[in-house]
Design a protein around this nucleic acid. Sequence first.
DNA 1: ACGATATTTAGGCAAACATCTAAATATTAT
DNA 2: ATAATATTTAGATGTTTGCCTAAATATCGT
Lengths: 99, 99
Amino acid sequence: MEFSSLVFKALSDPTRRSMLERLRAGDLNAGELAEGLPMTKASVSHHLSLLKQAGLVRVQRQGQNQIYTLDTTVFQEAMQWLMDFFQKDAKPASRRPKG
Amino acid sequence: MEFSSLVFKALSDPTRRSMLERLRAGDLNAGELAEGLPMTKASVSHHLSLLKQAGLVRVQRQGQNQIYTLDTTVFQEAMQWLMDFFQKDAKPASRRPKG
DNA sequence: ACGATATTTAGGCAAACATCTAAATATTAT
DNA sequence: ATAATATTTAGATGTTTGCCTAAATATCGT
């Protein structure tokens, strides 16, 4: 699946957005991310997998825990796509390193 | 469905993103938006309906045609949500560069 | 009003999604 | 090696999505 589709699809679910928002305050492991959510840890794991696929989070094992961290690079790319809609004439898409 | 979910879900489909990108160059009617797309006009209409629901486009009849226009307000709101992930106001993430 | 054109709505179908339970994997402690 | 803990993966199920064809609606030109 296309990269942008993966990202926006990942962002289209309220559970996943809530997870991302909680990660703003600092890294959390899978169990912590599952706390307070009205679903099983298996389901949370599935959501995390989608966020990871989209590149919105990175994960790193620390003992028995998997620690999730925001990866803001992709946020920036999504933002850039949206921002382009405010430039009147430019041709769309085609991510390039700003030049 | 939640507003943000509607918006990101609308953006998560490549056909719909392509439509939005084409609308950047100027308003188009449904038929023009359907041109070159590998699907029926009925399917295009369905996509347009989702974009409209998300508030990403406005529509206005002109004779037999329905003219679609970008509505950048919602783009701005989505962008704001993404942008908040770069504000350092929250407690800084405890990230180790590598281990 | 009638027929042509533009577009949407309705009904149906296969694929994808969100969720669950159960089982598997990875790590730590004994 | 075994048990306990943390997390993911697999399999199942109901819902949603994206597409189609066929039918309905809206407008225009005659």
